[in-house]
Design a binder for these strands. Sequence first.
DNA 1: CCACCCGCATACCGTGGGTATCCGGATACC
DNA 2: GGTATCCGGATACCCACGGTATGCGGGTGG
Lengths: 209, 209
Amino acid sequence: MAAMARPTRAESQARTRALLIETARRLFLRDGYHATTLEKVAEAAGYSKGAVYSNFGTKDELCQTVIDLVRGEQVQAVMDAFLGEGTDETRLAAFEAWAERTIGDPGWTLLEAEFAIHAARRDPALRDRVASGGRAWVGALQLLLEKEAHRRGLALPMPAPEMAGALLSLGIGLGLRRAVDPALSPEALPDMIRLLLDVATRPPGTGPS
Amino acid sequence: MAAMARPTRAESQARTRALLIETARRLFLRDGYHATTLEKVAEAAGYSKGAVYSNFGTKDELCQTVIDLVRGEQVQAVMDAFLGEGTDETRLAAFEAWAERTIGDPGWTLLEAEFAIHAARRDPALRDRVASGGRAWVGALQLLLEKEAHRRGLALPMPAPEMAGALLSLGIGLGLRRAVDPALSPEALPDMIRLLLDVATRPPGTGPS
DNA sequence: CCACCCGCATACCGTGGGTATCCGGATACC
DNA sequence: GGTATCCGGATACCCACGGTATGCGGGTGG
């Protein structure tokens, strides 16, 4: 209680930091990395640029923080969707809903790609950190694939790590293309997954439809 | 001859434009869209910023010009590689060499992706133009797939347009991921193509290896 | 209670896209 | 051939934005 009446410095700063992250998240996701200025973030959060720089070393650091946060949520969401209970079709439908929400939303895909490109050209350290984010995705997808294959009792058409990488690449590419060309169907990713499952699952002698 | 001794204005401007495009191409491919400044381009080409703005309305227009140019060459190159003569394996090897050169080179993939993202957020007109570039890729790949399927006398595992789209997405995603994480194998794209060919080609009763 | 510390605000700098204006030589008309 | 005009390119400038230096005021430790 005393802490609320007169917040300690650490609490006060933590609150500032949280507000900045929350605001930055909204703006970065809405407008992208370059179009979002630190001044806009600071003002929207009710602070000045100084507050940002006393909580984050650079714009890159703030954005990376936001991205790590959001990616964690996304990975969690896709794991929940695909690893939950239900029939194969139910879970595939849940995954499709997730894909529609995530890949269909330009904000997230564009931000992660934009920042990755930015980092790739900046300094190797930032690039490495972004690369580890990609590996986090691959790891999650790999786990997903292995569990799914085991649950269905079938062999994957290629080693799980490579297949996870291919899936991630496909998702990134589709997200980008869809952001540029909204007419593009979001069904492509689920279709591809269905095809791959079909490959592994198809009884001998059955050709492609 | 008279034209060389004293170039007409149109000739002079055409030369300026060509030099600017050539220089811009080098810098955009090397450093990316945001890191390349018009002043650097102008200076490297031996002109001033004014020359750029009297030949191109905006930085976006210059970059779009460069991208259209390079994409045309890339599409041509991949068509030549895959539609040329030779055995199936020879042509697949030629394609792999192309993929290694193109997707392995961060410059091109990063530039096209960076500009696409930039355009997607800017104005719809620019976004549409970038989208048409994407459709050009899809069209070329579709033609390629159909010809290859016909040559081998087998059915594609999914409709050609969708498959072309998937392939393009895969290429984009792999290119981006590889730019961020150079340790990533460039074999993934050819592997995926082999897998898909394998799916359509596999004799009945043969499971995945 | 007081001196110090530090989170945030303010003022400022360098850079880069874009604009306004100017200059000089090619062009058009007589 | 002379001269008025036009226009490609140069120069000077504006503003936005990332980043830095410094100042202020209130929490903190003695």
